[in-house]
Design a protein around this nucleic acid. Sequence first.
DNA 1: AATGTAGTCAACCGCAGGCAT
DNA 2: CATGCCTGCGGTTGACTACAT
Length: 284
Amino acid sequence: MEGAPLGWGRQEVDGWRKGPWTSQEDKLLVEHVRQHGEGRWNSVSKLTGLKRSGKSCRLRWVNYLRPDLKRGKITPQEESIIVQLHALWGNRWSTIARSLPGRTDNEIKNYWRTHFKKGKPSKNIERARARFLKQRQEMQSQQQQQQQLLQLAAGQVVAKDENQDGGGARTGTTADEDDRGSAVVDDACAAPSSPAVAAEAAAAGHHHDEDLIMHDAMDFMCPMSCALLHGAVHQGGGTGSCCGSTASDEYGSGEEDGATWGSLWNLDGVVVDDAAAAVACTLW
DNA sequence: AATGTAGTCAACCGCAGGCAT
DNA sequence: CATGCCTGCGGTTGACTACAT
């Protein structure tokens, strides 16, 4: 803290430039990525003459230069998503960022720190969070009930099957499926949107835990996600009224929100693959 | 108008995991 | 199998800006 200015005051350390990037450096980096693509960051300095470490180049690209970055303030909708996903995933900023196209983990991290870390969250956020937790609780108890019913039903089916030729009835599957409770949901999900995708996911094991988490998240966000997903997944179907409410019911003005959510949940995103989309809708 | 304070953003650091050798 | 390198992630820091006093 004494002597020479710390941090960005230092212009060069061990031959590497540090501190704020100049537009010239940005240019070089952008040009490099355009020619060689992302990755191999350590070769950037060799190929471009840029006196920046690979790490620094990557960071600059990811957080600032990437063309698909969304500029501007975090919207209330994005804020809600951040809160919900943070409740689920904690400080896994990059994971959260994947659910917010155009936003970087750094941005989200900063946003969280400044808005929620020490201060009190906005009313909007508190409401969102409370609702999320409540619904999650309700869903869990519902699933438990469902499970019990299924177990009862399974018992009956098994009894019947003893007389018939099994036929691979779903309800007669192994205990490990039953104890997950979500097996039924998964199965139901596969039907409406993309059986192939869902089947593939199921076959691959497909991060089952994360899927469950996504069930929760999508469950909560259903008012928004369903409307969109019906548009996106069942393209043109348009009758997506799986929920009582619409995206705009609770989250502000309709058209604008629709657009926002459209971009938020665009299908390039990691989160809303077909299977997850189906999950969200079947839950409602 | 000047100063202090809080908020925001960009960038760095250290660590961990994955992959090639 | 061990080692080293590269990449990605989360935490932290410092500069800048906006707002309040």
